[in-house]
Design a protein around this nucleic acid. Structure first.
Lengths: 366, 366
DNA sequence: AGGAACGTTGACAGCGCTACCAGCACGGAC
DNA sequence: GTCCGTGCTGGTAGCGCTGTCAACGTTCCT
C-alpha cells in the first residue's frame, strides 16, 4: 500500500510555463481562456502541458479565484427511483463539462435542506440544483442572495428563484382522474405515502377533480407519512377497501404503491380493471410489463435532470437559456389496468406494451 | 491596492483568532484537533467562531495541507436499485463525519473507471471507494500507489488493494441452486442481463452447481449485454422456454428479471411454483409482496455501503479497522415461488412475508 | 533544587494559482 | 510623424490556511 509521497514530483503550472517558455500567468490563461493567447504560445503551452502530464490543482485555483467548479445538488432521497433517473440526467450532462457534482440528501426535511444549503453556499458553488419549491423562508433568502445560477427542479411554481424545470403535479393528478372518469369510474380512491409536497399536490389535484364532479369523500383518501413501498401499497389498499367496499378505481401517488395494489388485488381475487381500475404515477419501467399492464402518468425524469444541468451550466458560462422556466409536462399512459375494454387475457408474449395508448397533456400553470 | 476587505465580508480564521485573543495557528488547531488546546482557549475560540459565524475555507485548507476531505466513490450505475441502497449507506455514514462524497459513474466500463480514477487521484482524495475487483492493470497500479485508504465493495476477491467488503456472488448463486435442488428441481434455467463481472460470477456459480450435479446444459442459459429490466426478464424467459420447454425452475441474476419472469408466467398461465419455480437475486423489497411471493438471495447492500464508508473514515483518521476484509454474506430467502409446498392461495392480506424462511449462508472465500 | 519531559503556543514561510494592472509592440487615424 | 487603441504578455501580490519547529511554562522525577 502506498504511503507518504507528497508534493515531490507534482507538476505545477510554473513547470509547464517554463518548458513552454512563457510566464506562469500566460500558461494559466491557456487553461481558462485559450482564445486570449497568440496561436504560437497556445500550441507551445498545450504541448508542454501534455508532455509533463500537467493536472491543475483545483484547490489553488479555487483559493485564488474565489470560485469553484462544483455544482451542488440537493435531493430529498437517494433510494427513490424517481430521483435516480433525475440524477442520471444531471450526471450525464455534467460529464462533458468541467463542473463536478456535489450531491446531498435532504431526507425530505426542509430544515436539513437549509443546513445543507448553508454548507454549499459557503463553498461558493458554480451553480445549484434544488428540489421543489417548498424551501424554508431562510433557505429562500439564501437562494435569492446567492451569486450563482440556481435551478429548481421537479415541479412548477409561481415565483422561481432563478430557473425552474418541472411539471404540474396538480394537473397531472387531475388528468389521471379525468382519465378514470372517462372510463366510467366514479368511486375513485386515493392511496399516498410519504406525503412530501409534490405528493401533497397530487392529492390536491385528485381532491379538486373529485369535488368538481361532486364525488369527493374524505374516506376515499388513505395516506401515510411512512416511506413508500410495494408492500405498503397493499396495506393501504386494504385499509381503503375496508372503508369503502364499493370503490371502483384507485389512483396511487406512485408506481410502487400501484404495484402493491395490483398484488393485493390478486391476493383477494379482485379483477382488474373489471372490479377495480388502477392508475399509478411516474410510469416506471415495470408498469408496462405487469399483468395486467398498469396505467400510469409518465413524467420526464431523466430529461428533467439533464435539461436542468445543461441549463445551469449554460447560465454559469454566461449564456442564459432562452427558456429559464420550463414545463416538461406529463402523459397519461393508458394501459389495461384502467381500460374500459375487457383486457385480453392472453396477449402476445412480448406484447405487454402493445395496448399502450398515450394521452399527452401539457401541464398548464395555475 | 493594499488590504481590501474580503468581498462579502467573509470571516477568516484570523478574525476568529483575534476575537478569541489567540494566534491564527491556535485557532486553526481548534478546528482540526481541539484536544491539543487548553480548555480555556478552546472555549474562547469556540465561542468566537460561533459569534462570527465562521465557516472554514476548504480550498485554502486543501491547498495548505495537501489534503482534501473528499471521499471519491466509483460506481458502475446510478439507476440500478442495488447501488442506490449502497449509496444511501455511504452517504449516511459520511454525514456525521467531516468528509464529503464525490460520486462518479463508470457506466460499467473499466476504461471509464480508469479515467475517473486518474481524475480523482489528482485531487488527493482522503479516501476512495471502488466497485468490484476487476480494474484495469493501470487502474490497479494507480490504486496501489495511492496514498489514501481504499475500500473495494460489492464482492470478495483474492488480492485486496487495501480494504474490502462484499460477499461471494459465486457462492450465493450456488446456494440458490442448492436450494432449488433441495426442492426437487432439476432442469434449472439461468436468466441474466448486462453481464457485468458480478453477474458473470453468479453465472459461474450456477454453472458449477449444475455441473456438480451433472445437470448442466448450455441451452439452459440465456444472457444478454443489454441493461436489465422487468420487461427484459419476460423476453429472456420467453427465449429460454422456447429452447427448453421442460424447464422446471429459473434462477434470475437479479430481481427485476425475476419479476419479469413472474409476469410472463402469468401471461402464459404457467403456475408458480407448480410448473416453474423462480429465484431472484438481491431481495429487493417487492419480492416479499409479489403474488406469489418470490424467493431471492438477500444481499446486505445498505450495510455494505455504510460499513465501507465507516471503515474508510476510520482508516483515514488513522484507526485501521480490526477487520479490513469483510465478508457480509447473503441469505437465501425462501418464499412461495420456490416452495415445494403448494402455496396457500389466500394468505392473510398483510401476510405476504409470513411464509418467508431464511437460509443463512456465510459466503466462504475460495 | 535542578533538569528532563511534557504539553501548549506562536512565528514564519509558503501551498499553486489567479486578479489586477502595467508594459510592450504594432498598426491605423489624424 | 505623433497619438492612441488594441492585443498580448508579464510582474506583483496575495487568496486563507497549515506544516514545521522553536520557545515557552508547567510538572514530575531524581
Amino acid at each position: 500500500m502506498g504511503r507518504k509521497r507528497t508534493k515531490s514530483g507534482k507538476i505545477r503550472l510554473a513547470e509547464v510555463a517554463e518548458l513552454a517558455g512563457v510566464s506562469p500567468i500566460t500558461a494559466s490563461r491557456f487553461f481558462r481562456n485559450p482564445e486570449a493567447l497568440s496561436v504560437a504560445k497556445r500550441t507551445r503551452v498545450e504541448s508542454a502541458a501534455k508532455e509533463l502530464g500537467y493536472v491543475p490543482n483545483l484547490a489553488a485555483r479555487a483559493l485564488a479565484s474565489h470560485r469553484t467548479e462544483v455544482i451542488g445538488v440537493l435531493i430529498p432521497s437517494l433510494t427513490n427511483n424517481v430521483f435516480s433517473d433525475v440524477l442520471r440526467g444531471i450526471y450525464d450532462a455534467s460529464e462533458s463539462s468541467r463542473y463536478s457534482i456535489q450531491l446531498s440528501n435532504t431526507r425530505y426535511s426542509i430544515l436539513q435542506e437549509e443546513k445543507l444549503l448553508r454548507l454549499f453556499l459557503a463553498q461558493k458553488p458554480a451553480g445549484l440544483i434544488v428540489t421543489g419549491i417548498d424551501q424554508t423562508v431562510e433557505s429562500r433568502a439564501m437562494l435569492e442572495a446567492a451569486d450563482c445560477p440556481i435551478v429548481q427542479i421537479m415541479e412548477m411554481g409561481p415565483n422561481p428563484v432563478d430557473m425552474m424545470i418541472g411539471f404540474s403535479h396538480y394537473d397531472a393528478a387531475r388528468a389521471a382522474i379525468a382519465h378514470l372518469f372517462a372510463q366510467g369510474h366514479r368511486r375513485i380512491g386515493f392511496v399516498g405515502a410519504r406525503m412530501d409536497p409534490r405528493v401533497q399536490r397530487r392529492l390536491d389535484g385528485y381532491v379538486s377533480a373529485m369535488k368538481d364532479a361532486g364525488l369527493f369523500e374524505q374516506r376515499l383518501v388513505v395516506t401515510t407519512g411512512t416511506p413508500t413501498s410495494v408492500t405498503l401499497g397493499g396495506a393501504l389498499f386494504t385499509d381503503l377497501l375496508a372503508r369503502e367496499p364499493g370503490m371502483d378505481a384507485v389512483f396511487c401517488a406512485n408506481d410502487d404503491l400501484a404495484l402493491g395494489v395490483l398484488f393485493e388485488c390478486r391476493r383477494r381475487e379482485i379483477a382488474i380493471p373489471e372490479q377495480i381500475a388502477i392508475v399509478g404515477f411516474n410510469d416506471l419501467e415495470f408498469m408496462a410489463s405487469a399483468v395486467p399492464t398498469l396505467t400510469s402518468v409518465r413524467t420526464n425524469r431523466y430529461e428533467m435532470g439533464n435539461t436542468a444541468a445543461t441549463m445551469l451550466i449554460e447560465a454559469i458560462d454566461g449564456r442564459r437559456p432562452e427558456h429559464p422556466v420550463l414545463d416538461l409536462g406529463f402523459k397519461v399512459v393508458e394501459r389495461q389496468s384502467s381500460s374500459a375494454r375487457r383486457p385480453d387475457s392472453r396477449p402476445a408474449a412480448s406484447g405487454a406494451g402493445a395496448a399502450n395508448k398515450m394521452v399527452a397533456l401539457p401541464s398548464g400553470h395555475d
